[in-house]
Amino acid sequence: MFIVLLNYKVPLETIDQHLPAHIEYLKQQYELGTFMASGRRVPRTGGVILAQAESKEALLEQLALDPFSRHDLAEYDIIEFIPGMTCPELTFLATS
């Protein structure tokens, strides 16, 4: 499991120009089962994605398809973790 932290490198006006394409990319990743949750950071300096992938390298390949990546609009910090405990609604994420 991975937490992906996006940090915008450009003004929000530029981000907003590419937002529709980014949203389409997110929808594709949800359909593929790669992304589990996503949303904006507060304050709006980037975003957060909860993802699952076979490896960090596989995730990096998927993130390279993001318009924010292709147009060099954001940096991506990736945190890998193993969920050991969850709330009842998310037990499917836990690996023990």
Rank of each mutant, 00 (worst) to 15 (best):
N7K: 09
E54L: 15
E57T: 15
I15A: 10
I15C: 14
L12Y: 05
G39N: 00
S55E: 13
H22T: 12
P20D: 02
R41A: 14
A51Q: 08
L5R: 12
I23F: 07
Y25N: 06
E75L: 10
P43V: 06
M85I: 03
D77P: 04
A94K: 11
A64I: 00
L63D: 00
E13S: 11
M36R: 14
R41N: 02
L65M: 14
R70L: 06
R40F: 03
T45P: 04
P88D: 05
K9C: 11
P20Y: 07
K9D: 02
I82L: 02
F92N: 14
I23S: 13
K27I: 09
I78V: 15
E31L: 14
T34Q: 12
P11E: 05
T45Q: 03
F81G: 05
I79Y: 08
G46E: 00
M36E: 08
L32T: 11
V4A: 01
P20W: 06
I78K: 02
L63T: 04
E89P: 09
A58Q: 10
T45D: 07
F2H: 08
L93I: 08
P83N: 09
V10Q: 15
A51S: 06
A21S: 07
Q52I: 11
T95D: 13
G46T: 04
F81W: 01
V42E: 05
S69D: 12
L93K: 09
L32D: 14
N7P: 03
V4T: 01
A21G: 05
Q62R: 11
P67E: 09
L63I: 05
S38K: 10
T45Y: 13
F81L: 11
V10H: 02
L73G: 08
Q17P: 02
A74D: 14
A37T: 02
I15H: 00
E61Y: 07
K56D: 10
L73F: 13
V4H: 03
P83D: 05
R40I: 04
P20N: 04
T86Y: 00
K27G: 00
F68W: 09
E61P: 04
L59K: 03
T34G: 12
E80D: 15
I82A: 12
F35T: 07
T86Q: 03
P88W: 08
L65V: 02
Q17Y: 08
T14P: 03
S38P: 10
A74T: 04
A94E: 10
L12I: 09
L63H: 03
V42L: 01
T14H: 03
V4R: 01
L93V: 11
I23Y: 03
M85V: 01
V4K: 05
S55D: 13
M1V: 15
Q52Y: 13
A94T: 11
Y25F: 14
S69C: 05
V42G: 06
K56N: 09
E61T: 04
E75S: 15
A51Y: 02
I82P: 12
K9S: 06
E54R: 14
E61S: 13
